[in-house]
Every structure is written in structure tokens, then in C-alpha cells.
Computed example of a mutant assay.
Amino acid sequence: MNLRRLSAIVLKELRQLRRDKLTFAMIAGIPLLQLVLFGYAINMDVRGIETAVLDQAGTAQSREVVAEIASSQVLDIRYHLDSPQDIDHLLRQGKISAALVVPRDFEARLQRRDRPPQDRLPLQLVVDGSDQSVQASARQLAAYPLPGWESRPGVEVVNFYNPERLAPLNTVPGLLGVILTMTMVMFTAVALVREREHGNLELLIATPVSPWELTIGKVLPFIGIGLIQVTVILLVGHWLFAVPVRGALLDLYGASLLFVVASLALGVFLSTLAGTQFQAMQMAFFTFLPQILLSGFMFPFAGMPKAAQWIAELMPLTHYLRLSRGIMLRQAGLAELWQEIVVLLLFCAVLLSLAVARIHKRLD
């Protein structure tokens, strides 16, 4: 082995890497991104769970207990309700993840020193069981002692939508979005780059195809593939894990269609930034990592700092997880989850417009 020739090859590779600014940025960017996400944004100690209070007792003591529980910062009380029906309505819409219920005979229950088995606990915490992180945090409050109940827990936790706390009911709706993100973005991220590398882009430039026609033409074939993936995941999830679809199947496919288009728009936009297929795949991974970590699929959304939550709100996977879990587990409709639909529509419009603008520059 000739060390001189070897050093010449190494020097050539280093110079080529220096000229490849995107790859060089990835070398530094991916470790920094992982460090920030895992070290700062990921927090298993959930705080600030969106909560409503139904105080049917309406006494000074009940208000004092509610305020004391709120001071633990596990619950973030945002609504004060008048009827039990409001709890189900807000849970289905995804506006709250828990509801603290104070019964009318709250003070009388506190006076009972001996609790018969048929009696319920003084307080009840209704939890959205479609989110396992919320369930785990709610169990922390189950042991909360009340005056006269110091030797035993005073909060009864009731899991809505997943009373048996089955993990697949929480995981499969999330995997639906994760798999679509990984495949749809990756497929289209290399679309225009492959055309450029094979010399087909020059042929397309010579045709009367407009930038919008080129962009939509790249997206449309993959929409059908995405919907086929949705069908496969739903069938396997039902057969193997008995995961239900409690809402309207048409609503779920409508939300999935919108999310597929959003993911494809992101992939096409990335393909206009990359110079090679390898760079396109790098960028797809670079966008996939924050989405899977910050969307609430792997780690509790409520436990993240506000800055991380703001970033997560800009990602389509965050909103699709709320849609898929809401429709499949909480039997919510698209009308109840309209805010998530609006965000995905805006994401599609912005990303497709940016992709068309960049393709137009290339055609010039």
C-alpha cells in the first residue's frame, strides 16, 4: 500500500465533502438535533395535562381541594363545566385529556371513616385512555390523600376509550401516521432528483408541462399507494391486535388522504433542495426524526417544553396523530377535529406552493 496515493484519495474525499455543503451540514446537524431533542425536549415527567373540572358540590372545601390538586402542576385546569355531557364533548374534540369530577355529596364522603365496597371514592378523574402517557400521569394522582382519607387514596381514575389500558390501541393509530410519513416523504424526496440524475428533467423542461402539472403529476401516483398502506395497517391492526375503528371509516380515510398529500408535498419540496438521491434521503430522515419524537407518538406531548410544542405544531404528523386517535378510539368526527384539518390543509398549500416556485425557477 502506497501511503502517498492513499493520502491523495483521503484529501480528495475531504475536499469533495467540503464542497458538498448539504452533506457537511447533515454531519453536524443530525447529532445536534438528536442531542437537543433527547436532552431537552423529551421529558417523561408529564405536566400540564389539559383538564376540565366538574364541581357538582360547589362548596368552599371542594374548591380548596381542586386548587390543591391543580397546584401539583400535573393538571392544567382550563375549563369549568356544568354537566357531565360536556366532559365527553371536550374529550372527543381533543380539547382536554382529563376531567376532575367532584360529586354532590363530596363533603359527606369525606366524613366516612369506613368506606363500604359499593361506595365510590370522593373524587373521580376521567382520563382519555387513547393516550398512555396521560394514563400513567393520572395514576400518580390516584394516590392523592384527602382530608379524612390520609391513609388511603381519594381519587378514582376512570379510563375512557381504553379501560383495559391495552398498548396496541394507543400504538397502532400512531404507527399509521409514522409509516405513512416514512414512506411517502422518502418516495417523493427522490422523485425530481432521480429525473435530474437520469436526464429526464431536461426533457420535461422542453415540454409544455407547467410547474403545477409537474408537481401534481409527481404526487398523484403515490396517493393511491398511501391509501393502500392505510388499508393494510388497519386490517393487520384489527386482525392481530383487535384495534377498533369506532368512528366513521370514511372520516379516517379522508384524514389519511389529507395527511398523505401533506407528506408527499414535503417530499417534493425536499427533492427541489437536494442535488442527489442520497442527499434527498438524508433530508427526508432529517425531517422524519423530529416528527416521530415531537408528535406525541413516542413521548408525551404534554411533557415537552413550550418551545418544543410550538415546533411540533408545525409538523403534519402531530395533527394526524390527533385525527387518527380521535376517529379510531374516541369516535370523533372530522367536524369535531376541524382545527387539525385546517392545519393540514394550510401545510399542503404552503409546501406545494414552495415546491412549485422552486421548480419554476429551475424551468427558467
Score class of each variant (00 low, 15 high):
residue 33 L to I: 15
residue 65 V to M: 04
residue 132 Q to S: 06
residue 150 E to K: 05
residue 323 L to S: 01
residue 29 G to C: 10
residue 356 V to K: 06
residue 53 V to W: 05
residue 179 I to L: 14
residue 282 Q to C: 02
residue 214 L to C: 03
residue 203 L to D: 15
residue 359 I to S: 00
residue 312 A to F: 02
residue 76 D to F: 00
residue 320 Y to T: 07
residue 31 P to S: 03
residue 241 F to I: 06
residue 133 S to N: 13
residue 170 N to T: 04
residue 76 D to Y: 06
residue 102 V to M: 12
residue 107 E to F: 07
residue 99 A to P: 08
residue 140 Q to K: 12
residue 280 A to T: 03
residue 331 Q to F: 01
residue 274 A to P: 12
residue 22 L to C: 02
residue 170 N to F: 05
residue 59 T to V: 12
residue 217 G to H: 11
residue 269 F to T: 05
residue 115 R to G: 11
residue 146 L to T: 10
residue 171 T to F: 05
residue 109 R to F: 11
residue 127 V to I: 15
residue 171 T to P: 02
residue 328 M to W: 03
residue 29 G to N: 01
residue 168 P to S: 07
residue 260 V to K: 02
residue 287 T to K: 01
residue 223 I to T: 06
residue 234 L to Q: 15
residue 344 L to W: 07
residue 349 A to P: 09
residue 265 A to N: 04
residue 210 S to H: 13
residue 292 I to C: 00
residue 119 D to I: 15
residue 125 L to T: 15
residue 122 P to R: 13
residue 21 K to N: 05
residue 276 T to N: 08
residue 291 Q to S: 02
residue 2 N to Y: 15
residue 350 V to C: 04
residue 248 A to S: 11
residue 315 M to F: 00
residue 270 L to K: 01
residue 347 F to D: 01
residue 97 S to F: 02
residue 252 L to I: 07
residue 224 G to N: 09
residue 343 V to H: 03
residue 1 M to V: 08
residue 68 E to H: 06
residue 312 A to Y: 07
residue 127 V to W: 11
residue 311 I to M: 09
residue 292 I to N: 00
residue 361 K to H: 11
residue 92 R to I: 06
residue 61 Q to N: 13
residue 299 F to S: 14
residue 305 P to A: 06
residue 174 G to T: 02
residue 22 L to P: 00
